[in-house]
């Protein structure tokens, strides 16, 4: 089974803040990490490989620095890695991104299974998985919480819904995106780290993947960011005073109308 895992290097979102005065991103000390959902996608891919054989290729579209994230993926059990990187990709939204990724995966010989994280924590769009599947002509499932079985070409999965879950069945080749509940990602092994050090990185440019330049980057992106600003907060800040008992009594009185 030839498995591809899409990974993205993202800023650690919990550290990202917008300075309300200058409207600039406070990026001091913000670390680049592998998108947390992608770690679960990778773990699931490596487990499937361990059980059913095959190879796991991690692929990322991003700047040259994303190589570090790909090497980390190798240390966690991936076999091969490819970085799709070109200035022409700048400004890509999910529409252009799925086009680029699909061209790259096709260039690398296609996949039996593609696994993505549910979403990336910087954009939170959750659109790359479904979009990529469509471009690959594959069926897909989002928010998978469990791989129930793989028998030949038939894969059974549990997909999370808002009110429970669906047990579903699809045939390979297909794509699914995962939620964190699906597994506990492993910590890189020593041998994995050594392999990651030596592993050859396949670099793919826009020309290498035979992409139509009009469909890349900003040019190929239907959406445009026109403004960024910090979220508004409600500002009430009414602290009750006194001992715990006094505060509780005040609150109980104030809540009488609601309860």
């Amino acid at each position: 089974m030839k498995i591809f895992v899409c990974v993205k290097q993202v800023p650690d979102a919990k550290d990202v803040r917008l300075d309300p005065k200058t409207n600039t991103l406070a990026r001091e000390g913000v670390q680049s990490i592998m998108n947390p959902y992608d770690r679960h996608a990778l773990e699931e891919a490596v487990r499937l490989k361990e059980q059913h054989g095959g190879t796991v290729t991690v692929i990322s579209m991003g700047p040259p620095q994303a190589e570090a994230t790909l090497r980390e993926a190798i240390s966690c059990g991936a076999d091969e890695m490819a970085l799709v990187s070109d200035r022409a990709f700048a400004g890509a939204d999910t529409w252009a991104t799925t086009y680029t990724l699909s061209m790259a995966i096709k260039k690398l010989g296609g996949a039996d299974l593609i696994i993505c994280g549910k979403q990336a924590i910087d954009g939170d769009t959750a659109q790359v998985g479904p979009g990529l599947a469509e471009r690959m002509g594959m069926p897909y499932l989002t928010c998978v919480r469990k791989v129930v079985s793989v028998a030949g070409q038939v894969i059974r999965l549990e997909r999370m819904m808002d009110d429970g879950y669906d047990l579903v069945e699809a045939e390979l080749p297909m794509l699914f995106t995962v939620v964190k509940e699906i597994n506990e990602p492993r910590i890189p092994s020593l041998k994995g780290k050594m392999k990651a050090k030596k592993q050859e990185l396949v670099m793919l440019s826009a020309a290498d993947i035979g992409a139509d330049p009009d469909l890349l980057g900003l040019k190929g992106s239907p959406t445009q960011v026109v403004n960024v600003f910090p979220p508004e907060m409600r500002g009430e800040r009414c602290l009750l005073e006194g001992t715990a008992d006094e505060q509780v009594a005040q609150l109980a009185t104030k809540l009488e109308a609601i309860l």
Binding site: D93, T94, W95, T98, G123, D124, T125, A126, Q127, G129, P130, G131, A133, E134, R135, Y140, L141, T142, C143, M160, M161, D162, S221, P222, T223
Partner: peptide, 23 residues
């Protein structure tokens, strides 16, 4: 932006070449 909406709408947008903003 429900489980269903966030699953199917990206597909439709991809097919149509339409811009999609999530959530």
């Amino acid at each position: 932006a429900t489980a269903i909406g966030r699953s199917v709408i990206p597909r439709v947008a991809t097919i149509l070449g339409a811009g999609l903003t999530a959530d």
